[in-house]
């Protein structure tokens, strides 16, 4: 029993799950049952993937012991590259990979600079936040490019599907990515190296793990997911605005942290990051339904982030103090 309790208390996403249940209940009562009705859930699930995809990448990178503040800018840059090419009449099947390629290039640059010059990724990616945002504005010329009608296969990414049109296609893409990245982290040797690299770098190095390459791969995956998420948003909106994704980098970090990811690396789960993202969407939506002034959203988000980390730290300490026999 005690053993079981300890195992659950050590799950980093536990606090996030509890918050989600509590807030869900409160909003459901407050809104008189509107919160969980089909239409509202459809609204939450329709917007969720865009943020949750970014949160998945940021969570993975944080578990690897690094940090990415440039995801919000990549979120705009990737679809802008695609949009500019589409406006020039380039086919989607070239423009879409070109956009994702730009995202990968940003990730590669972040990784190489961080490792080659041995500087904190906080600084590298803070710089990249400005660089990528500026690049987005420059290539767009300040105006959203005119994407020809039907140039994007929107059906494959944002159309409503499922019983009662419950989901958008983007939700299925998100589910597939979430499962793949979770398996990558939890079941593959690469995942083991990511955790070791973020958990204790000297040990990973002394066991012969190519830690530089592992980190660069995580930077690239993080950027790729941010770019993909931005592309989905642009397909939903129909035009790439140079300003989308501003502030998203901090929401993604908040999602990861609320979901139990440690800033120091090594601790966290993809599921936790997703739960954090769901929580942020739920707060956003629930406050509106409860007729609370929308200006309170950031206050709630900020409060929850700090509170979640305190609760997580407390749980971890309690679980550790709970002595169970390690010897048989």
């Amino acid at each position: 029993m005690r053993r079981l309790l300890k195992i659950y208390m050590e799950k980093p996403e536990l606090a996030g799950i509890v918050f989600l249940l509590v807030l869900g209940t409160i909003f459901q009562i407050q809104s008189g049952g509107v919160f969980l009705n089909a239409q509202n859930v459809q609204g939450i699930l329709g917007l969720l993937p865009e943020m949750a995809l970014v949160a998945i990448g940021v969570t993975l990178l944080m578990i690897c012991g690094e940090f990415d503040l440039s995801v919000g800018s990549v979120f705009a840059l990737c679809p802008m590259v695609m949009g500019v090419l589409l406006a020039d009449g380039v086919s989607f099947w070239l423009a879409f990979p070109a956009g994702l390629g730009a995202a990968l290039l940003v990730g590669l640059t972040n990784g190489i600079i961080t490792i080659r010059f041995n500087i904190p990724s906080f600084i590298t990616t803070l710089g990249m936040l400005f660089v990528a945002r500026s690049a987005t504005v420059v290539i767009s010329g300040g105006f959203p490019p005119m994407i020809p009608q039907g140039a994007m296969p929107r059906d494959a990414f944002v159309a409503f599907v499922g019983p009662g049109d419950m989901f958008r296609m983007s939700f299925l893409w998100f589910l597939a990515v979430a499962i793949l990245v979770s398996l990558l982290l939890g079941r593959t040797n690469f995942g083991n190296w990511v955790r070791a690299t973020g958990g204790f770098l000297p040990a990973a190095q002394s066991m012969g793990i190519p830690t530089a390459r592992v980190k660069i791969a995580c930077f690239m995956l993080c950027s790729l997911l941010a770019g993909f998420a931005g592309t989905i948003q642009v397909m939903r909106l129909g035009a790439p605005l140079p300003s989308i994704g501003e502030g998203l980098e901090l929401q993604a970090v908040a999602a990861a942290v609320i979901g139990g990811t440690a800033l120091t690396g090594g601790i966290g789960t993809i599921l936790g990051g997703i739960i954090g993202a769901v929580l942020i969407r739920v707060i956003d939506n629930g406050l509106v339904l409860s007729r609370v002034d929308a200006d309170w959203f950031k206050m709630a988000l900020g409060g929850l982030t700090i509170f979640a980390v305190i609760v997580n730290a407390w749980l971890r300490k309690k679980a550790r103090a709970m002595k169970v026999e390690t010897n048989t």
Binding site: W193, G199, A203, S206, I209, G266
Partner: peptide, 17 residues
């Protein structure tokens, strides 16, 4: 200190790399 990752399980530590 350097040969084990404290935040990982025994089995995972045994086979790192």
């Amino acid at each position: 200190y350097n040969s084990m990752v404290p935040t990982m399980s025994i089995a995972r530590n045994m086979f790192i790399g």
